[in-house]
Design a protein around this nucleic acid. Structure first.
Lengths: 212, 212
DNA sequence: GTCTATATACAGATAGAC
DNA sequence: GTCTATCTGTATATAGAC
């Protein structure tokens, strides 16, 4: 049947794409040859060209595919308080990174390299997501300040940017230290602790912020 | 004279090394061909091989050269108080990064790529420096706690790790956002503010930490 | 659609003249 | 030491059979 044939073709295409995404993520663009992709996907090099025309287009398609899960629902936080919402967001960030180590590494890698490919739609999208995340954080902090649960004498936007930076930094630190002994989760938890120790208004001087 | 000859040779060697360092830093290892290096350094490819044997060894030499300025004197902090010493350290980090953008980008790039070259002496050295920096920070915080100027109910080592992560994160954020509009210095200052707002013992609830 | 075989370009590396 | 000329491998990409 014709449908069966085109379904097979689609599957082959997807297989190439999945393989390419993984290899690009692991080794970067220049370190990944089409021969490798072909071998891992168990197809011929020519077929890759038939489907994607050239390496650059394969790369773009793989990038798009890699970006698909790049969505964090920053709004479904229900009726939670400011503090719980922030904790939720931070956890979401951690879970997302944890679930997408390969592609995160991929983008971190893209960021550090300069060149034509850098001004890519891919980075645009990541930037967008990153900013949306930061804005959510800022909004929550702001509303917490207006609601009287957070101290008013801090800059919500900068607070948010700082939390974002710390999250990104913990990520880099994790990639950096070859020993996987230290769990980034531990630092994430401590980050929460410090954020609230600083932000939350407490009569006892701050120890009520959550940690002994 | 023989001395004159060998001096010229040394200069040529240094020129190749400088060119290679720059190109590797800008474009990474795989994106930099020896033809490029040769062209930019205005020498022949063969000469590069004569001096460095192979690309990998050129890379290692360039790495060593790049690492030369990688030294921050974490001890020359004189008789300053804990708070001033921390500020000094943070500023040193910023200044250092600012003065070595290319090579910092280079190493950030190395970190994100996996592969044989990753277990390199270069990364070892950076890791070392990074940890030394973190340890200094932790020590100062600890001594500040023992001296009674910092609140005792925080974990000095984790505090230090978090500050380091934030510094690294600010760096990445800076590389990430194409618009150079936002000055990382601003966030660095705010980082200082928040750190002391949190750490410093103050009767008035923290506003004495330094910023209105 | 998928393959084998091939064209073309450029990378890293060598040989040998000067 | 420095060069030109060349080797060799492998990368992207194409041609054409099935």
């Amino acid at each position: 049947m014709t449908d069966q044939r085109s379904l097979d073709a689609r599957q082959t295409r997807e297989k190439i794409l999945a393989t390419a995404s993984q290899l690009f993520s692991e080794n970067g663009y220049e370190n990944t040859s089409l021969s490798q992709v072909a071998r891992h996907a168990k197809v011929s090099k020519a077929l890759i060209f038939w489907h994607f025309d050239c390496k650059e287009k394969l790369y773009r398609s793989a990038l798009r595919k890699t970006l698909e899960p790049y969505y964090i629902d920053v709004h479904d936080l229900g009726e939670l308080g400011a503090r719980e919402r922030i904790e939720r967001l931070i956890d979401q960030f951690y879970d997302f990174v944890h679930a997408n180590v390969y592609s995160v590494r991929f983008f971190l890698n893209l960021i550090t390299l300069r060149g034509e490919r850098q001004a890519d739609e891919g980075l645009e999208r990541v930037n967008e997501l990153y900013h949306a995340f930061g804005n959510s954080l800022a909004e929550i902090i702001d509303s917490g300040q207006r609601g009287g649960v957070f101290r008013p004498d801090t800059d919500a936007r900068r607070d948010a940017a700082l939390i974002m930076a710390t999250l990104a930094g913990i990520l880099v630190q994790h990639f950096m230290s070859a020993d996987t002994s230290r769990d980034p989760k531990d630092l994430i938890d401590y980050l929460k602790f410090t954020v609230f120790q600083r932000l939350v208004i407490a009569a006892d001087g701050g120890t009520a912020a959550g940690r002994p």
